[in-house]
Design a binder for these strands. Structure first.
Lengths: 198, 198
DNA sequence: ATGATTCATGAATACTGATTCATGTTTCAA
DNA sequence: TTGAAACATGAATCAGTATTCATGAATCAT
């Protein structure tokens, strides 16, 4: 509900979910300011005022969507990484999983990017949380001799940047993305760098 | 002027420039929607209506700022690259120049990112133009044996992603950025990749 | 020096859209 | 079955701000 408790009836739960789904679609497509509450409730098939039964403000749904993106991407990437034989394999799987996620839920991806302006705290939180776990994994891998030594925090951010930008260009902007090719090319760069083979 | 011609008096030229500078500051700080025309003219020291003598709409100044960012970054990076002995050196210089630019004009950097939502055409144009030139340079370097072969377009976007994200995290979010360290760490990754030394 | 042109001003206009609320309807535990 | 609690509705409120415009001042080519 708008206050903070969960809905107490079946119908309430369903309505809230419908509104959240509608908000993801509408805000993802039109952007935060252009998306009106009326757009969202129309998409959800409810009356205008119903929105305010479940969310106190427009910012509140947005915030919740950013958190959802956080959980969903972490889950997708973690699962994809799980069982990889070594860190390099994990890198490749993780990149593929991220790009697949962007392809599956483009609206959520755009919402996180817009959070930079609409909800800066959440934006930083999203990436900082991700980066922390990422750097920790990289450090462990360096200890294990699976990857080169270096500043793993800088690397974590650099690698997140690669994934984000490839998502923009080769998933969102492409009619029929060739994910395998992009992943292969990017992974070759990540593993071996730009330097010429000796 | 609002129509499309340039100001015809000294004063007009100065006013337009003041408004553009004010818009960069205000929009960069508060974001596009939160920044009002009144904020911009107050910052510029002019009356409200004066804005519309020089720009037809709020979107128009924004668009001009995105173009300015395009020119300015290309100029900064091109100059930094100029005279580098080889492509790897150029990569390092270019990355440093970009991060220095972000540090010098953070508002412009944020404006370009917000263009993704406010002026998508300009946003794509900015990065596409940059990527095209970047990929061309990488191809030439691969021909010359200075870097490894591979899909240089994917690489160009991946490397732009690295620069963007490091700009966010280690320039915008850092009180006293240690650019040299970031550049060194990132460059090591770009040159050699994540793979362990044989 | 001067008047045609360009520019400056800010109050008034116009519109959009978030949020509220008074009035019903539905749900579900007992 | 039932009534207290939870939920649904959409017209009305309220606020903010982009844009216009009628009036007056500054500029500069001649």
């Amino acid at each position: 509900m708008a206050n903070g408790t969960a809905p107490r009836t079946r119908r309430g739960v369903a309505r809230r979910e419908a509104l959240l789904k509608a908000a993801e679609k509408v805000i993802g497509e039109k952007g935060f300011s252009a998306a009106s509450i009326a757009d969202i409730t129309r998409e959800a098939g409810t009356a205008l005022g119903t929105f305010y039964i479940y969310f106190p403000t427009k910012e509140a749904v947005f915030h919740e969507l950013v958190l959802e993106m956080g959980h969903a991407t972490r889950a997708a990437v973690t699962q994809a990484i799980d069982g990889a034989p070594d860190r390099l394999a994990a890198e490749k799987n993780g990149l593929r999983a991220f790009l697949q996620f962007v392809a599956a839920r483009p609206a959520l991806y755009r919402i996180v990017e817009e959070a930079r302006f609409v909800d800066p705290e959440a934006y930083r939180g999203y990436f900082t949380t991700f980066a922390r776990a990422y750097a920790t994994r990289l450090r462990a891998a360096a200890e294990a001799g699976e990857i080169a030594h270096g500043d793993q925090e800088v690397r974590a951010w650099a690698l997140m940047g690669v994934a984000k930008t490839l998502g923009d260009r080769f998933v969102l902007w492409e009619e029929k993305p060739d994910l395998d090719h992009v992943v292969d090319s990017a992974f070759a760069l990540i593993r071996d760098g730009l330097g010429p083979k000796p």
